[in-house]
């Protein structure tokens, strides 16, 4: 087992463990903190694939901004035992059945496909900021611009919602 493999297994175990902790913790603040650890583990995988730019942007956007807002909301809501809603038994069953079906489909779909060939660890060049920028602004410029318009409309929507009170 060489360095890369060791890191791969370590990061994978960390990611799986912390995502399990996200859904099993009773206290939502712990869930958010474990989700942050999951993002770090995934960023570690990006670094292993030599995609440093993606790794750092993942941390800035998800761990640095979105999760802060999650925490923000949780802290203001002040969740505790008394305010927790009684869970509906039927809801629990339907959730379990729907989730189980999704899992069966995923297994069936992944079972038949060829294993994806991922570039040699540490050898890929596409994740570096220069290559990624060139690709985005030449080959994929139309989808890129369309997604930026989508972001703009989301921003305008947020401002409109925020202004409603006045």
């Amino acid at each position: 087992m060489d360095k890369t493999q060791f890191m791969f297994w370590f990061l994978s175990a960390l990611a799986v463990f912390s995502s399990l902790m996200v859904i099993t913790r009773k206290n939502p603040v712990y869930s958010v903190l474990f989700l942050i650890i999951t993002f770090f583990a995934i960023s570690g995988h990006y670094v292993l694939m030599n995609a440093q730019f993606l790794a750092i942007v993942n941390i800035i956007v998800y761990a640095g901004a979105i999760m802060v807002l999650f925490l923000f909301v949780l802290m203001l809501m002040n969740l505790n035992k008394e305010s927790e809603q009684q869970k509906n038994k039927y809801l629990l069953w339907s959730g379990a059945i729907a989730g189980g079906m999704l899992m069966v489909i995923m297994i069936a779909a992944l079972n038949t496909t060829e294993p994806a060939v991922i570039s040699q660890p540490g050898a890929g060049q596409i994740g570096l900021i220069k290559n990624l920028g060139t690709k985005l602004f030449t080959e994929y410029v139309v989808p890129f611009e369309i997604s930026s318009i989508l972001f703009l409309s989301a921003m305008v929507g947020a401002v409109v919602l925020g202004k409603k009170g006045d």
Binding site: I60, A63, G64
Partner: peptide, 10 residues
């Protein structure tokens, strides 16, 4: 520089 920015965000 982005690394610095990420740590500041954390």
């Amino acid at each position: 520089m982005l690394y610095v920015f990420a740590v500041v965000a954390l």
